[in-house]
Design a protein around this nucleic acid. Structure first.
Lengths: 132, 132
DNA sequence: TTGTAAATGTTATATTATTACATAGTGTTA
DNA sequence: TAACACTATGTAATAATATAACATTTACAA
């Protein structure tokens, strides 16, 4: 059973915003959106983001400096993330593919070393953009 | 046969610096290091970096905002990159594993979509740091 | 030699993220 | 409940990363 994390006020405000969004959100765009809720400073946003990433409720898309809510109902795969990113419309989806995650979690390099965490970003054109 | 890219003056200065470095270099650390060679502005660095990334001579480590020289003699895999990153000493190595790259290049998601590019970053402790 | 693409130089500014310090809330346990 | 540790919050300042806009120059093929 997964540990229950009770989100604090700021964490909840920021998670809700990201969760409702259909696209990855950037930190300062989040800031502008939550100023009416009393969150005034970048640091307040970054602190909430850090925590949310840590507990797996959101993921950072490294190549875009943006954040999306975990699509995985269980939110247990924050140490093993894979995303597809459309280079045209910037749509991002979390990939949850058991074979892929098993393959990568078990991957060992030439020296036999295994890794405790990975992040994979695939790039291409999404269906919509491809057919344009 | 791979296309020959004759590096320009700035590109060469910056590539040489990165290539000699034992660790990933950040843009502003590069800037400080090349100021004696007449490169004065961030944009000059970023332009050279962009070009070097584009032609596959260097790669960007997205999670670190840093750049390393391609370890692959052929430098042809800039669209299919994988790295191991030590979370303690920050050592970064490029992984060139044929099976892995084949697996990922051929990966198709649930909808059968294939991707033209990927970047994978593994995290863990390197041998040295593990034994400490 | 002219056209064009690539590269350079420079200033200013935008975007992303952290340091430092002070205060307040939450939950545990002595 | 008092004392404690831990987490979260608030605020100001600043650091670090990256791009826009504009002018000029170089490389080189037609």
């Amino acid at each position: 059973m997964q540990k229950q994390h009770n989100l604090s006020k700021n964490q909840k405000i920021i998670f809700d915003l990201i969760d409702k969004s259909s696209e990855p959100l950037k930190a300062y765009s989040i800031l502008f959106n939550v100023q009416k809720k009393g969150i005034n400073a970048p640091l307040q946003v970054y602190r909430a983001l850090d925590k949310l990433v840590e507990i797996g409720k959101i993921h950072k898309i490294e190549s875009r400096n943006a954040f999306i809510a975990c699509q995985n109902s269980s939110c247990q795969i924050s140490k093993a993330t894979a995303f597809s990113i459309c280079e045209s419309c910037e749509k991002v989806s979390e990939i949850s593919n058991t074979k892929l995650s098993k393959y990568l979690s078990n991957f060992a390099d030439e020296a036999g070393m295994k890794y405790s965490k990975y992040n994979l970003e695939f790039f291409g054109l999404c269906k919509k953009c491809k057919s344009k």
